[in-house]
Deep mutational scan, measured.
Amino acid sequence: EEKRQVKQVAKEKLLEQSPNSKVQVRRVQKQGNTIRVELELRTNGKKENYTVEVERQGNTWTVKRITRT
């Protein structure tokens, strides 16, 4: 359940930055209360990979860091 929520948060964050792209989740890793989500962003056939680190704060998820990989 929490992985599902985190995927959603990570996707939304990337789509905010580039709204007309397609996002696909590649991998989800958990480390303590930080969850790392690896995503693939496609814009006009151009692929970019991103890693989004999401942290739990109380009962909400906040995006800590977005890295292009």
Results as ranks from 00 to 15, higher is better:
residue 29 Q to Y: 15
residue 6 V to D: 02
residue 45 G to K: 07
residue 48 E to Q: 10
residue 45 G to D: 09
residue 30 K to H: 13
residue 38 E to G: 04
residue 23 V to G: 01
residue 60 T to W: 13
residue 11 K to D: 01
residue 32 G to F: 05
residue 39 L to Q: 00
residue 28 V to M: 13
residue 22 K to M: 11
residue 30 K to V: 14
residue 65 R to T: 14
residue 50 Y to V: 09
residue 30 K to P: 09
residue 44 N to F: 08
residue 44 N to Y: 07
residue 66 I to N: 00
residue 14 L to R: 02
residue 48 E to M: 07
residue 33 N to H: 06
residue 66 I to W: 03
residue 62 T to M: 12
residue 24 Q to H: 14
residue 58 G to M: 04
residue 39 L to C: 08
residue 24 Q to M: 13
residue 9 V to S: 03
residue 16 E to A: 11
residue 59 N to V: 04
residue 51 T to L: 12
residue 12 E to P: 01
residue 13 K to V: 13
residue 61 W to P: 03
residue 43 T to F: 13
residue 65 R to W: 08
residue 49 N to G: 11
residue 55 E to D: 04
residue 11 K to R: 13
residue 10 A to F: 02
residue 41 L to M: 14
residue 66 I to E: 00
residue 56 R to A: 06
residue 65 R to K: 14
residue 26 R to M: 12
residue 37 V to N: 00
residue 8 Q to K: 14
residue 5 Q to S: 11
residue 7 K to D: 05
residue 11 K to Q: 08
residue 5 Q to I: 10
residue 17 Q to E: 07
residue 26 R to N: 08
residue 33 N to W: 04
residue 68 R to D: 03
residue 41 L to K: 03
residue 68 R to C: 06
residue 17 Q to N: 10
residue 29 Q to H: 14
residue 29 Q to F: 14
residue 11 K to E: 09
residue 65 R to Y: 09
residue 63 V to P: 05
residue 16 E to Y: 02
residue 57 Q to H: 11
residue 26 R to P: 01
residue 38 E to L: 13
residue 17 Q to M: 15
residue 64 K to P: 01
residue 5 Q to W: 06
residue 66 I to V: 12
residue 60 T to A: 12
residue 22 K to A: 10
residue 35 I to R: 01
residue 41 L to R: 03
residue 26 R to S: 07
residue 11 K to Y: 05
residue 49 N to R: 13
residue 9 V to E: 02
residue 17 Q to F: 14
residue 9 V to A: 07
residue 47 K to C: 08
residue 19 P to Q: 04
residue 7 K to H: 07
residue 4 R to T: 11
residue 7 K to L: 14
residue 59 N to I: 06
residue 16 E to C: 06
residue 55 E to H: 09
residue 39 L to W: 01
residue 34 T to Q: 08
residue 42 R to N: 14
residue 22 K to R: 11
residue 11 K to V: 15
residue 26 R to C: 07
residue 31 Q to M: 15
residue 69 T to V: 12
residue 20 N to D: 10
residue 29 Q to W: 14
residue 50 Y to L: 04
residue 26 R to L: 15
residue 35 I to N: 02
residue 22 K to D: 11
residue 19 P to V: 05
residue 43 T to G: 10
residue 64 K to E: 03
residue 41 L to P: 00
residue 8 Q to M: 07
residue 25 V to A: 05
residue 5 Q to V: 11
residue 36 R to C: 07
residue 45 G to S: 10
residue 53 E to T: 09
residue 37 V to H: 00
residue 55 E to C: 05
residue 61 W to R: 02
residue 48 E to S: 06
residue 9 V to N: 02
residue 62 T to R: 12
residue 14 L to E: 01
residue 20 N to K: 10
residue 54 V to P: 00
residue 1 E to C: 08
residue 25 V to G: 01
residue 38 E to C: 07
residue 11 K to A: 10
residue 34 T to M: 11
residue 63 V to R: 00
residue 9 V to F: 09
residue 38 E to Y: 15
residue 48 E to P: 00
residue 25 V to W: 02
residue 54 V to C: 06
residue 22 K to G: 05
residue 47 K to V: 13
residue 27 R to V: 06
residue 50 Y to H: 01
residue 45 G to Y: 05
residue 38 E to M: 14
residue 4 R to F: 10
residue 43 T to E: 10
residue 17 Q to P: 01
residue 61 W to I: 14
residue 66 I to M: 05
residue 33 N to D: 12
residue 68 R to S: 05
residue 56 R to T: 03
residue 67 T to E: 10
residue 5 Q to G: 09
residue 39 L to I: 11
residue 51 T to K: 04
residue 39 L to K: 00
residue 30 K to T: 13
residue 36 R to G: 02
residue 69 T to M: 13
residue 2 E to V: 07
residue 15 L to C: 05
residue 32 G to Y: 03
residue 63 V to S: 01
residue 34 T to V: 14
residue 5 Q to A: 11
residue 21 S to G: 12
residue 46 K to C: 09
residue 12 E to M: 07
residue 55 E to S: 08
residue 56 R to E: 03
residue 9 V to G: 01
residue 40 E to D: 04
residue 7 K to S: 15
residue 4 R to L: 08
residue 44 N to R: 10
residue 36 R to D: 02
residue 49 N to K: 15
residue 22 K to S: 12
residue 16 E to P: 02
residue 28 V to D: 01
residue 9 V to R: 05
residue 10 A to V: 10
residue 47 K to I: 13
residue 55 E to W: 10
residue 63 V to H: 00
residue 62 T to H: 14
residue 12 E to N: 07
residue 19 P to I: 05
residue 17 Q to G: 10
residue 68 R to A: 08
residue 21 S to H: 03
residue 23 V to I: 13
residue 52 V to W: 01
residue 16 E to H: 05
residue 1 E to I: 02
residue 13 K to R: 11
residue 29 Q to I: 14
residue 16 E to D: 05
residue 25 V to Q: 01
residue 45 G to C: 05
residue 64 K to C: 05
residue 61 W to K: 01
residue 40 E to S: 08
residue 39 L to E: 00
residue 13 K to P: 03
residue 12 E to Y: 02
residue 14 L to Y: 01
residue 45 G to V: 03
residue 66 I to R: 00
residue 2 E to T: 12
residue 46 K to D: 06
residue 12 E to H: 09
residue 27 R to F: 11
residue 45 G to W: 06
residue 40 E to V: 14
residue 57 Q to F: 12
residue 3 K to F: 14
residue 29 Q to C: 09
residue 48 E to Y: 11
residue 19 P to F: 03
residue 69 T to W: 10
residue 39 L to F: 06
residue 29 Q to A: 10
residue 14 L to S: 02
residue 31 Q to D: 13
residue 37 V to Y: 02
residue 14 L to V: 08
residue 52 V to R: 00
residue 45 G to I: 03
residue 37 V to I: 10
residue 7 K to Y: 06
residue 53 E to M: 09
residue 24 Q to Y: 14
residue 50 Y to F: 10
residue 60 T to V: 13
residue 49 N to T: 14
residue 54 V to L: 13
residue 69 T to R: 11
residue 11 K to N: 02
residue 63 V to M: 01
residue 35 I to E: 01
residue 61 W to C: 06
residue 41 L to S: 04
residue 17 Q to V: 14
residue 19 P to E: 03
residue 69 T to N: 12
residue 50 Y to Q: 00
residue 62 T to D: 06
residue 21 S to V: 07
residue 8 Q to P: 03
residue 20 N to W: 01
residue 64 K to L: 14
residue 63 V to L: 03
residue 56 R to I: 07
residue 24 Q to G: 04
residue 26 R to G: 06
residue 11 K to W: 06
residue 11 K to C: 10
residue 47 K to S: 12
residue 6 V to M: 07
residue 40 E to I: 12
residue 43 T to R: 07
residue 4 R to H: 12
residue 6 V to Y: 04
residue 35 I to D: 00
residue 51 T to E: 10
residue 36 R to K: 15
residue 3 K to D: 15
residue 51 T to D: 04
residue 37 V to T: 00
residue 14 L to G: 01
residue 36 R to F: 15
residue 56 R to M: 09
residue 59 N to M: 09
residue 38 E to P: 00
residue 43 T to M: 11
residue 2 E to W: 07
residue 49 N to D: 07
residue 69 T to K: 09
residue 4 R to P: 03
residue 48 E to V: 09
residue 19 P to G: 03
residue 66 I to S: 01
residue 22 K to V: 13
residue 63 V to D: 00
residue 58 G to A: 04
residue 50 Y to P: 00
residue 23 V to K: 01
residue 1 E to F: 03
residue 69 T to C: 07
residue 33 N to K: 10
residue 11 K to G: 03
residue 41 L to G: 02
residue 39 L to S: 00
residue 7 K to N: 07
residue 30 K to C: 09
residue 1 E to D: 05
residue 12 E to W: 02
residue 14 L to K: 03
residue 62 T to Y: 15
residue 37 V to L: 07
residue 68 R to N: 11
residue 69 T to D: 10
residue 36 R to A: 07
residue 49 N to M: 13
residue 30 K to R: 12
residue 38 E to F: 15
residue 44 N to T: 07
residue 68 R to L: 13
residue 4 R to Q: 11
residue 57 Q to C: 08
residue 37 V to W: 01
residue 7 K to C: 11
residue 28 V to A: 05
residue 18 S to N: 15
residue 31 Q to I: 15
residue 59 N to F: 05
residue 33 N to R: 08
residue 30 K to F: 15
residue 65 R to E: 12
residue 55 E to Y: 08
residue 16 E to N: 06
residue 42 R to D: 15
residue 62 T to A: 12
residue 46 K to T: 11
residue 37 V to P: 00
residue 23 V to D: 01
residue 46 K to H: 12
residue 23 V to A: 08
